[in-house]
Amino acid sequence: MSVTASTHAAPGNPRGRRTLAALAAARAWIFLILLVVVFEIWSQIAYGTTFIFSSFNIRSIAVFAVAPVLLGLGQTLVIISGGIDLSVGFTMGLAAVIAAHVANGVGAAAGPGIGLLAAFVVALGATMVPGWINGVLVARLRVPPFIGTLGMYGVARGAAYLFADGTTVPVQNNWLTWLGNGRILGIPALVIIAVAVVAIFHYLLSETLFGQYTYAIGGNRQASSRAGVNVRRVTIILYVLSALTAGIDGILYTGRFAAGAPQAGEPLLLDSIAAVVIGGASLFGGSGTIIGTIIGALIIAVIQYGLVFLNVEPFWQFIAVGLVIIISVLVDQSQRRFSGGRQDE
């Protein structure tokens, strides 16, 4: 794998390999488009109405995708670096509970605006702690990411329940609930925030040296280290970023449902990892993109929303999402075999 980690695209690839790589990168797009086309035709034939040319449906799908997307953003970086972060679900819950308490407490004393600001500062500050510990465990103490973050999953979970007194914390802060449910020019505020965070992460991964280091570490940790990459520092930052996106997710969840729930992120963890994998990231590290993860999350959202819209028996949703994951990984594997190596972007 490339030892020179500073170039953007993997250099020196023969043309054929590049085409294949591009095709593989596009496969998530192709999948999403096919899915939408099938659902549209189905909806037209069975019900005589449109599926995708409806602002209501698009808005609903977008709002649904926000939670797994945010959880999957930091996760994408961690997975590209060859790690995994299982703690994000409860880091999200921890942030949700803390944000609820702070938005209520500070909001009552200093007004909802200050309360909202304080909720962001305190909740995000708090999530950096489990993120940093994850990073130190993995980078410095060489604990396998799966185990280290599994431990943190338990710790964050316990802390979230303790702060919440075992239940959900209702929120009385209009600003925070507006953030979760308000709209600007018909676009949900949630979606606008998510797009902004996505843009930052896309830039970080695809345009900065930090992003290249992330790929390099996932490609070959030792080689990156010899090439002068501060592997430990980058790894710690990756896990902190992962906790931060989970934290933002938790705060938005609290705003949306007017309740800080410790278990908010628990059912989302697997969906978010699935989104990353469907989006083309390899669990062995070294490949993946932010846009891929977004497409992956949208595929899951379209399936889940669409099948309800089309009145399909609920259990088919599980089967459909499961099949998409398997097919994605199969395509990924065969592409790897053809190209004989990892693909950078």
Partner: peptide
């Protein structure tokens, strides 16, 4: 109408409500 199962996930339950409402 048919019962919707949400895996105890509020996000999924919300999406299902929107979808049933759209239909």
């Amino acid at each position: 109408l048919p019962t919707q199962f949400n895996d105890d996930d509020a996000n999924k339950a919300a999406s299902q409500a929107q979808s049933v409402l759209a239909r």
